[in-house]
Amino acid sequence: MTATRAEELKEKLIDTAKTSLDDAEELLREAAGTTGEKAAELRERAMAALKRTRDTLYDAQDAVIQKGRHAARVTDDYVHDKPWQAIGIAAGAALVIGMLISRR
Score class of each variant (00 low, 15 high):
2 T>V: 06
2 T>L: 14
2 T>E: 12
3 A>K: 08
3 A>N: 05
5 R>I: 15
8 E>H: 12
8 E>A: 13
9 L>G: 14
11 E>R: 11
11 E>W: 10
12 K>R: 02
13 L>A: 10
14 I>P: 04
14 I>E: 11
16 T>W: 07
20 S>N: 01
21 L>K: 08
22 D>W: 06
23 D>A: 13
25 E>M: 14
27 L>K: 14
32 A>P: 03
32 A>L: 08
33 G>H: 03
36 G>Q: 04
38 K>T: 14
40 A>S: 15
40 A>L: 14
42 L>N: 01
42 L>G: 00
45 R>C: 05
45 R>K: 15
46 A>Y: 06
46 A>R: 05
48 A>N: 03
49 A>S: 15
49 A>W: 13
50 L>Y: 10
50 L>R: 09
52 R>K: 14
52 R>P: 07
55 D>K: 03
55 D>P: 08
56 T>V: 08
57 L>K: 05
59 D>G: 13
61 Q>T: 07
63 A>W: 00
64 V>N: 02
65 I>Q: 07
65 I>S: 05
66 Q>T: 08
66 Q>P: 03
66 Q>D: 09
67 K>R: 11
68 G>Y: 08
68 G>C: 09
69 R>C: 07
70 H>V: 02
70 H>C: 01
71 A>N: 07
71 A>I: 05
71 A>P: 05
71 A>L: 09
72 A>W: 08
72 A>P: 03
72 A>Q: 06
73 R>K: 05
73 R>Q: 04
73 R>N: 02
74 V>A: 06
74 V>W: 00
75 T>D: 13
76 D>R: 09
76 D>S: 11
76 D>F: 11
78 Y>G: 04
80 H>S: 04
81 D>M: 06
84 W>F: 07
85 Q>T: 11
87 I>N: 06
88 G>N: 09
90 A>K: 00
90 A>F: 00
90 A>C: 03
90 A>G: 12
92 G>E: 07
93 A>Q: 12
93 A>D: 11
94 A>L: 15
96 V>Q: 02
96 V>K: 04
99 M>H: 06
100 L>R: 09
101 I>Y: 14
102 S>W: 12
103 R>Y: 10
104 R>E: 01
104 R>H: 00
